[in-house]
Design a binder for these strands. Structure first.
Length: 553
RNA sequence: GCGGUCGUAGCUCAAUUGGAUAGAGCAACAGGCUACGAACUUGUAGGUUGGGGGUUCGAGUCCCUCCGACCGCACCA
């Protein structure tokens, strides 16, 4: 019997025992969790605490009574569990090894599908990475891209329908600024002293774009007025930079279902439609010829302008329309924003509330990344022109190390990243530890007799696995579905990275203590089966992390 | 000033969302290969969870209040 089924049986028995022993108390909800410390058993429940007040007895006594009653009622529990003990008020249990063997057999049977969730029917809109099309992707986007993509994969793995989107902020004045910047670079090809606009985007990354225009059009634009060239240069730059951003995302292994142009939304009248909805709901007012969203009525700390007094919509207007569309087509809308967007949380949540979708929108901020090089802080401002691009990082440490590194930390936590250290210590990145585990298993399987391997891949004869390291590893592998679900529910991809390390660690320990390819055939097959199951789980986790699972390294 | 995130071992971070003796990795120290990959492993040491109150069987987690860091606070995007 699988651990989950065994636990469900025990939960039912304990709940019944609670009702029998303490009929005056409301029926408690009995749930088992894996305790932090292994010596507390495989699983643990705190149900006794909830009954102490009414029972007027210590949690320890209550726990004892519940166990006795449950065992008296169902003697079969003694077979499923090797121990059921009260300890400090908790009820700690240890499963019979057969349950862990059953999990291994299941992993072998299901392969890459082990841990996959049933379709839930939940539609999720996930937006992350969105940026102005005025420059290459930078380090902080490495964090949102890694996190967002891993979340998308994990949510899908756990049965959600996920729609991944990026919004291109190409409707505002920054695109004109981009056009003027490129034009200056274009003129500088002929005259290096040509002035660069004060508000322009510095750095050298616009020079190749200017060069491309020059190669195609020659000096056609030199003597023209801004009104003639601006549109052209802006659009060319915007298209080129969006394409660059898309290439970088792809290189990073991140796929989008939709790159939504903000300008397109304006052109198609969708922004106006979204605003109209807000106006119809009475959530707006006019002041000095401008239109404001009454955000303070919905928890924001300030009302927000959505239409300027000259009639042009603000950026927020497009945000409103876009989120309105997303809220209509999804059950759960998730935004992962950069660290300079703290002010957005209030207004976006207020917006969802005003539109009648309170609670459906989750806004998460990826905290800041401080980039260091050899102990000195590196400026990452696009303004300063001295930018470290995501591509630079990928060139230095590779996709695998970068992907893993960026999801290792909770989004809530600010992150310090020393480039020099990253290069020097890339071998210390835990991703290599995990990948090594996978490669090591592959090596064992290569050394094994092929006949043994194919038999192990199908076997259910796993009774010989009784070494503590074997059972600990099996128990760890069994956690995969729960870990993945936790990542999906709490939007916490760093748990995958942690879990991957734990699996690898348990494997290395098993490998150190237990010889796989020994003379005892029955034991050899069982241990090979454990290796195969471990390799399967590692491959699944690495896949969710967007990291390759190498056969050798 | 207002708001938003945070503050945990020397460093980088966890802590199953209120559970047990707060855990890992680096770095430090001491061990382990004539065994399937030592890119591994075993152990030691390291803490008043920024300070102080409160809520309760129980607080790193929730509330209040100070201190500190970062980020926002446009009819820019």
């Amino acid at each position: 019997m699988l651990p989950t089924d065994a636990l469900a049986t025990l939960e039912g028995a304990l709940a019944a025992a609670a009702v029998a022993c303490y009929p005056q108390a409301p029926a408690p909800d009995v749930t088992f969790e894996a305790p932090r410390r292994p010596e507390f058993g495989d699983f643990s429940t705190n149900v006794a605490f909830s009954l102490t007040k009414i029972a007027r007895r210590s949690p320890q006594d209550v726990a004892r009574a519940l166990i006795d009653a449950a065992l008296a009622h169902d003697a079969g529990l003694r077979v499923l569990f090797s121990s059921i003990e009260p300890m400090a008020g908790f009820i700690n249990v240890r499963l019979a090894p057969a349950s862990w063997h059953a999990v291994l057999a299941r992993i072998l049977r299901e392969g890459a599908d082990f841990g996959r969730g049933e379709k839930t029917g939940t539609r999720i809109s996930l937006e992350f990475g969105s940026a102005n099309p005025t420059g290459p992707l930078v380090v902080v986007q490495g964090r949102t891209l890694s996190t967002g993509d891993t979340l998308a994969k994990t949510l899908r793995f756990r049965g959600r329908d996920v729609f991944v989107e990026w919004i291109i902020n190409d409707a505002g004045s920054q695109v004109d600024t981009l056009g003027r910047s490129i034009y200056a670079r274009y003129r500088q090809i002929l005259d290096p002293s040509y002035p660069f606009p004060e508000e322009g985007y510095p750095g050298d990354y616009l020079r190749p774009i200017a060069r491309a225009i020059y190669d195609r059009d020659g000096e056609d634009w030199v003597d023209r007025d801004e009104s003639a060239w601006l549109r052209h240069f802006s659009k060319f730059g915007r298209d080129e930079l969006v394409a660059q951003q898309q290439r970088t995302a792809l290189r990073f292994g991140v796929h989008y279902d939709l790159w939504q142009s903000e300008k397109e939304m304006h052109d198609q009248g969708r922004v106006t439609a979204g605003l109209q909805r807000l106006i119809d709901l009475g959530a707006t007012y006019e002041q000095d010829g401008a239109v404001f969203f009454r955000a303070t009525a919905f928890g924001d700390d300030k009302d927000r302008a959505i239409v300027r007094s000259d009639g042009r919509p603000t950026y927020y207007a497009a945000d409103i329309a876009y989120h309105y569309e997303k809220l209509q087509r999804a059950d759960r809308v998730i935004d992962i924003l950069g660290p300079d967007h703290h002010g957005y949380i209030g207004r976006l949540k207020g917006l969802a509330a005003a539109l009648g979708y309170e609670g459906k929108l989750e806004v998460t901020i990826a905290q800041q990344i401080t980039l260091m090089r050899g102990g000195e802080q590196v400026s990452m401002s696009k303004r300063a022109g001295d930018i470290i691009t995501l591509d630079d990082i990928l060139d230095e440490v590779g996709v695998d190390a970068a992907r893993f590194f960026f999801i290792m930390l909770s989004l809530d936590s600010p992150l310090t990243f020393d480039l020099k250290l990253a290069v020097e210590q890339s071998a210390e990145n835990p991703v290599f530890y995990v990948q090594y585990g996978h490669a090591r298993i592959a090596s064992v399987l290569r050394n094994a007799d092929p006949g043994d391997c194919s038999e192990a891949a199908r076997t259910t004869a796993l009774d010989r696995l009784d070494h503590p390291a074997e059972l600990a590893l099996a128990r760890r592998l069994a956690e995969l579905p729960g870990v993945a679900e936790g990542v999906a529910v709490h939007l916490a991809p760093h748990r995958l990275a942690r879990y991957a390390r734990d699996v690898a660690s348990d494997f290395h320990q098993f490998y150190t203590e237990c010889k796989v390819l020994g003379d005892d055939r029955e034991l050899r097959i069982a241990r090979l089966a454990l290796c195969i199951a471990t390799k399967t789980v590692l491959a699944t986790v690495l896949e969710l992390c967007g990291v390759t699972a190498p056969e050798s390294m």
